[in-house]
Simulated scan of single mutants.
Amino acid sequence: MNKKPSLTVHEALLKLMQYCTYQDRCHKEVEKKLDELGMYHDAKAHIISKLIEDNFLNEERFAKSFARGKFRIKKWGKIRITRALKLRQISTYNLNTALKEINEDDYIKTLHELVDYKYKQLGQKLTQANKQKIYQYLAYRGFENHLIYEAINNLKT
C-alpha cells in the first residue's frame, strides 16, 4: 500500500500559495484542497489565515472575477452566477458586489444576442413552441424572467 507522504505546514502553505496564484480561489476551494492534502484542522486554520493575510485569498476579488468571467465568457445571467456563488458559500455582501461588476447595458445586449442566436438556430419561425425553447434556453443560462419575456416580445420577425 503506497501512502502519500504528509506535508509540513510550510510545504502545504507554499503549495496553496501557488494554487491561489494560478487563479483566484474561494475559501471553500482552499479548504477542499487542504483536505486533499490531509491537513489537520489547526494547520488548515493557520494556512488559511496566512493566505488571507498575504492577500493570496480574497473572497471579494474571487467573487468579482468569477462574475465577470462567467458573464463574459460563458454568457451566464445573474441568477445562475448568484446560484454558483452561493454554492461556494460566498457572503451576500460579496455576492452583491460581484453582480455590480456586470454592466447593465452589456447584460441586456448579451441577452438580446442570445435571443437572436437561438431564434436563428430554430429556423426563424416564432411559433409558441419556439418561444418556449428560447425562454428555456435563457432561463437555463440564468437570466431573469421579465427580461426574457421582454426580449422575446421585442424580437424582430
Rank of each mutant, 00 (worst) to 15 (best):
R80S: 10
S49D: 13
K100W: 04
N130P: 07
E144V: 11
L95T: 06
L87N: 15
A45T: 13
E11F: 07
M1E: 14
A129F: 07
T92Y: 08
K78C: 07
S65G: 00
N94H: 08
Y135K: 00
V30N: 03
K50A: 14
L51A: 04
T8M: 10
K44T: 05
R68K: 15
K125L: 10
A98T: 09
E11L: 12
F143V: 04
K44D: 04
K131A: 07
Q23E: 08
F56N: 01
K133H: 09
K64I: 15
T127P: 08
K50S: 14
Q136V: 00
E60K: 14
Y40H: 13
L87G: 11
D105N: 04
R72V: 05
M17Y: 08
I73H: 11
L13N: 07
L138S: 06
L155G: 09
A139G: 00
K120Y: 03
A139C: 02
K4N: 13
N94R: 01
K156C: 06
Q132Y: 09
L138P: 09
R61K: 14
D35K: 12
N2D: 12
L13T: 05
T157W: 12
K75R: 14
A151W: 05
Y117M: 11
E53T: 01
L57D: 04
G69W: 05
N153C: 06
Y40V: 12
K78I: 11
K156F: 12
T110Y: 11
A43I: 06
Y119T: 03
K3A: 11
R72F: 04
A139W: 06
R141T: 04
E104S: 13
N96F: 11
W76D: 09
T97F: 06
L87C: 10
F56I: 03
K78R: 14
L138Q: 01
I79P: 01
K3Q: 14
L85R: 03
R68I: 06
Y22W: 07
S6H: 11
I152M: 02
T8A: 05
Y149W: 12
K70P: 00
I102C: 04
M39L: 15
G77Y: 02
H41M: 07
Y93G: 00
I108C: 01
L114I: 03
G123F: 07
D116K: 08
G77V: 02
L7M: 13
A139M: 11
R68D: 02
R80E: 13
